[in-house]
Simulated scan of single mutants.
Amino acid sequence: MDTQKLSTEELILEAAQAVFLEKGLAGARMQEIADRAGINKALLHYYFRSKEKLSALIIDRAIGVILPRVMAILETDQDLFDKIRQAVDQYLTFVSRNSFLPLFIVNEVNRNPQFFFRNVVAHEKPHLDKFRRQVDEAVAQGRIRPVSSAQLLMNMMSMLIFPFLGKPVFQVALGLSDADFEREMESRRIEVAEFIIRAIQV
């Protein structure tokens, strides 16, 4: 792939991300994406035949990056608390650079769950057998309070994802500028992991 083609595709993907975030998949128009990218509609269709393909590619590329990274951390032989710290850090690093994704994904899952799971995550089959066993063993050994691996993971991910979903509310309620919000998210690298660990530690 030559440099010009790569730069044009990236330009289109950036424009599509902005339009999808503002309008959602249903409200987005290919003409608007082309205008935002500074190209004509014919060229947009040359690269991407439909907004559905664009949407699926944007989310798929993102999930294809972060999901394997987090799953790989959770399936190592490391100490459970070290895993929590690393998974939190890895996720926040990624989402801070792609802050549009949580809201966009949640909106699209609610609008059309069949499309989302069929086209985006059907090929991703995370396995957390080692993580599940590790949590069960830690509970049995009395190292952590009784908790299922599912609840532990959901609690952790909820604390990581929700601030990005509720960013406008938090900014208004707490009087945070964009820079302030970014600093708070940076602090959450430590805050979330340690909060979770304190909650389950005996």
Rank of each mutant, 00 (worst) to 15 (best):
S7T: 13
S7L: 14
T8I: 14
E9C: 02
E10Q: 15
L11V: 11
I12R: 07
I12S: 11
L13H: 07
A16G: 11
A18M: 09
V19N: 05
L21M: 05
K23E: 10
G24M: 06
L25D: 01
L25Y: 12
R29H: 12
R36A: 13
R36D: 07
A37P: 12
G38C: 05
N40H: 07
A42S: 13
L43Y: 06
L43T: 15
L44A: 11
H45Q: 11
Y46L: 06
Y47H: 15
Y47W: 08
Y47F: 07
Y47K: 11
R49D: 10
S50P: 02
S50F: 10
K51T: 08
E52V: 05
K53D: 15
K53H: 13
L54D: 05
A56W: 03
L57W: 06
I63C: 07
V65I: 14
L67M: 06
L67E: 04
R69Y: 03
V70R: 00
V70H: 00
V70I: 15
M71D: 05
I73K: 02
I73V: 14
L74T: 02
L74S: 05
T76I: 09
D77K: 10
D79L: 11
F81G: 00
F81P: 00
K83S: 04
I84H: 03
D89F: 12
Q90P: 01
Q90T: 15
Q90Y: 09
Y91M: 11
L92P: 02
T93D: 15
T93S: 13
V95R: 06
R97L: 14
R97M: 14
S99I: 01
S99Y: 07
F100M: 04
P102G: 03
P102Y: 05
L103C: 08
L103W: 08
F104L: 14
I105H: 06
I105E: 08
V106E: 09
V106S: 06
N107A: 14
E108W: 04
V109H: 03
N110D: 12
N112V: 05
Q114A: 14
F116L: 11
N119Q: 11
N119P: 03
V120S: 03
V120M: 03
